[in-house]
């Protein structure tokens, strides 16, 4: 049975049909791509999946549970985590705290327990720190745990965002242009990292990426959006040859583009 099923999801902003009749089916532990020219509606699709926007129409189910209409924090608790196209860390907080905040949804701390530092809360705090440090160690960020998130180099910030998303213990991880702004070496490291995540954290990954090298190398299946509509879907080799995809990208640089979302 597939992990995520999306059927006929649409949203429009005023007159603009940003995403129309979006559909998607993801197997557990699969790695799929979502590509398309700038403004195609990729980030909007992520915002629909994570509850930032409410779909006008359509169904989204995760492991049989309907997600459409849930609020973002509920969807995260249900097992969907994400990163953002333009990095959204908690800049004034430490690297460690950034990850621990993502663990808060597993906490059962109420106001009373927090103020009196109940025994349970003390244990929980230690367990949270320990888990966060393990996660940071995997991403090679444990040496910088005490630093402010804003002081990290760009590539580290991108990786911290992934670590933070994983701290919510997702079954599905949505990465919005994780390679944007990285140099070739960092991109190579990122590819290894993403591939490793699938098994290590038992997640499926849906990836938005403009770097075709990364996408074609990593993804098992690819969905192509243009003007909010799916124009192609299939394995990388077929997508590369698809005339509609080539037409959509024609005259547009396919690599190294970074738009805003």
């Amino acid at each position: 049975m597939s992990l995520l099923t999306v059927e006929g999801v649409s949203i429009s902003f005023g007159g603009l049909k940003a995403v129309q009749d979006f559909r998607l089916s993801l197997e557990p532990n699969s790695l799929c791509g979502l590509i398309g020219p700038n403004g195609a509606g990729k980030t909007t699709a992520f915002n629909l999946l994570t509850g930032v926007y409410r779909p006008d129409r359509g169904r989204i189910t995760l492991g049989g549970r309907n997600l459409a209409g849930l609020r973002p924090h509920q969807i995260t608790a249900a097992g969907v985590a994400r990163t953002f196209q333009n990095i959204r860390l908690f800049p004034d907080l430490s690297v460690l705290d950034n990850v621990k905040i993502a663990g808060h949804l597993r906490s059962d701390a109420g106001l009373f327990g927090s103020i009196f530092r109940a025994r349970r809360q003390r244990g929980e705090e230690r367990a949270m720190t320990e888990r966060a440090m393990e996660l940071l160690a995997i991403f090679n960020l444990d040496g910088r745990a005490g630093e402010q998130a804003r002081s990290l180099p760009y590539g580290d910030q991108r990786r911290l965002e992934i670590a933070r998303a994983l701290a919510t213990e997702p079954r599905l991880l949505l990465l919005d242009e994780p390679a944007a702004g990285m140099n070739p070496q960092e991109k190579k490291g990122l590819r290894e990292l993403i591939r490793g995540l699938i098994r290590r954290f038992d997640v499926a990954v849906l990836l938005i990426e403009h770097d075709m090298g990364v996408v074609m190398d990593l993804c098992q299946r690819i969905t192509v959006l243009d003007h909010g509509v799916i124009i192609a879907e299939g394995p990388p080799a077929a997508i590369q040859k698809d005339p509609k995809v080539i037409a959509a990208y024609l005259g547009k640089p396919a690599e190294g583009e970074k738009g805003e979302g």
């Binding site: 994570t50 930032v52 609020r71 973002p72 924090h73 995260t76 608790a77 985590a81 994400r82 953002f84 959204r88 860390l89 908690f90 800049p91 004034d92 907080l93 705290d97 621990k100 905040i101 993502a102 663990g103 808060h104 949804l105 906490s107 701390a109 109420g110 106001l111 927090s114 103020i115 530092r117 809360q121 929980e124 705090e125 949270m128 933070r164 998303a165 701290a167 919510t168």
Partner: peptide, 22 residues
Amino acid sequence: SSLGRAMISIREDEIASQSMGV
């Protein structure tokens, strides 16, 4: 506390905060 950190994360970035389950 974990609760307070979650509160501060709202001021840091509300969108990110709710997306992390707060």
